[in-house]
Design a protein around this nucleic acid. Structure first.
Lengths: 139, 139
DNA sequence: AACAAGGTTGTAATCATTACAAATATGGAC
DNA sequence: GTCCATATTTGTAATGATTACAACCTTGTT
């Protein structure tokens, strides 16, 4: 993926770039697998041997705060992260742990007005849990 | 709240009653505050001095598995529990941490069909995050 | 080059949750 | 009621994700 695109995305979200931030943002944009902080660290430490896990956590928190990425709490075990900030839902397979994207534009756009007006909503998350097609067939 | 009602609810969900299970289920039914495991423990240990935190965790997991209660992962810090299993959404105030109920029957009933058929959906959670009316006014 | 501000690193906590094994309670057979 | 098998509870000790913190490194500026 083009570096410029990543720079631009970070800039758009008011985030100053750094080698680590770009690497992490790039990873999220190129991998649509909803990785955990640990997975991101394990992958990137190969390319940036000095990378620290604290940096990964700090950066992911920053990205989420600035809406450059989503932090998903669908999995009680650990947070997952998503580089796609456009409205969509998620499905967690309780068997294999995979988090799937679920297109649900219409649901989310109709969901916002359901919150009484005095609540100031920053984010709407729609989470589905169950068994994915793969695990449904296996057993 | 009538003991019979709680017994019945547990029985309906295939859960054998015990002093601890009834106390925890009762607490969830009488307190609509979406308590954490720790809050439940702290309250109930006054009435059941021998209560163990492990029992609270075990019981809450059992209740959630049997659909006698909901485990909410809206808060990244810890799980919250809800004795109301009828379809509704939740709102987490990022400032004060309160979890509010949001009536959203229509959203949820329309949400299920959005998941492609091969996914077997056990639960649908709709989570809103932001500032509640109280915190909105204060600052 | 010197400096200040911000970013990164590694280690050591924190804290929610779980594993586990011993102790206790429950319900049925006799 | 007693005995036994089974399920439940308890307390302590792990686990494991996340954060606190202080030292170190980078970067841009004068």
């Amino acid at each position: 993926m083009d570096d410029v695109k990543i720079y631009q995305h970070l800039a758009d979200c008011g985030i100053k770039p750094s080698v680590q931030r770009i690497a992490i943002m790039r990873y999220l944009m190129e991998h649509r697998t909803h990785p955990s902080a640990d997975e991101i660290y394990s992958e990137l430490v190969n390319k940036i041997p000095t990378l620290s896990k604290t940096t990964v956590y700090n950066t992911l928190k920053l990205l989420a705060e600035q809406n450059a990425a989503l932090m998903l709490t669908i999995d009680e075990r650990n947070a997952h992260f998503d580089g796609d900030t456009t409205p969509h839902a998620h499905f967690l397979c309780k068997q294999c742990g995979t988090v799937y994207d679920i297109p649900a534009h219409e649901v989310l756009t109709c969901a916002k007005p359901c919150v009484p007006g005095e609540f100031h909503t920053d984010s709407v998350d729609l989470y589905f849990r169950g068994r994915c097609p793969k695990c449904n067939c296996e057993n």
